[in-house]
Amino acid sequence: MPPVLRLLAKRLGTSLIVLIGVSLLIFAIARVIPGDPARIALGPNATAEAIAALRERLHLDDPFVLQYGYFLADLARGDLGISLYTNRPVTRDIADYLPATLELVIVSGIMMVALGLPLGVLSARYRGSWIDHVVRMVTLLGVSAPSFVWAVILMLVFAFYLPLFPIAGRISDSYTISSVTGFLLVDTLIAGDVKAFGNAAWHIVLPAFALALSGIAQAARLTRSNMVETYERPYIEMAKSYGFPEKRIAWRYAFKPSLIPSMTIIGLDFAAMLGNAFLVEAVFAWPGLSRYGVAVILRKDLNAIVGTVLIISAMFLIVNVIVDLLIAFINPRIRYSQRAS
């Protein structure tokens, strides 16, 4: 088996174990929160019989281990149960809300890499010049406040005082786009509606930027310091003494090796966006998983809570596996160490 596939198999294996651990934990925690889910779901006027019937249906009177067993058996069939809040399968709810969140996070991630890395490279390349100083000032600002603070500030400045961007939502009401992937940026293109695409893009810029800002800053600062450090390495001096072209040295000798430590942190930042997205979504009334998540937690909607957390964790783990693979792709040391282990 090629080393990269072995790495993939190994990481997927550990991810699965982590996911099972998370499910057990959240399953237990959801049940420890005070309040009877059946009573909350049925309202104050429900009869004792109705409540008992619902508790029966939810296996709430069974021992914990048995409950978890039922849950795992359902999960294996891809069934996360019925949400007491929406009265629909939790999987259906998640399928409805998740794409909005994912779209936001992915656009943010792209911004983080596409803006953060070049800024870092530029800053390192022109170390000590005004470009460097500006980048360092701005990025210091970026890392010094959490994303929901930026969300509020950006919304106030660029949507409220200067109405350059929409204040809320994913797309203007005048467009009706049939959902294929759930990603509006994709669905509008599938529908061949360029104007709708532009409108959706216009809506996502501000929330995505707010979410990405600290990541952009972090990526830029990290890339800068790694590049500066790499420029001191003997192999750079060797490349210079052999007269390799400047551009090649910058790209293959300075940037690529310094990407290895940057990637790990960027990957973690990217995964952390899944969590931060909740607050940014709240600020911009973004119809993503956060709204659903908050609502189901308040109603102690057990199945929905477990399902939402599980999906977020799964996303987190998938991102981590992808980052690990990317790092292995750049770093031969990791790729080849798989052979030995």
Binding site: P234, Y235, G243, P332
Partner: peptide, 22 residues
Amino acid sequence: HALRGTKMSMIFQDPTSSLNPV
């Protein structure tokens, strides 16, 4: 620049760290 690596070359103190690791 044209002389470097063609007419002149250099050997360093630590061979392993003088080669690009990636």
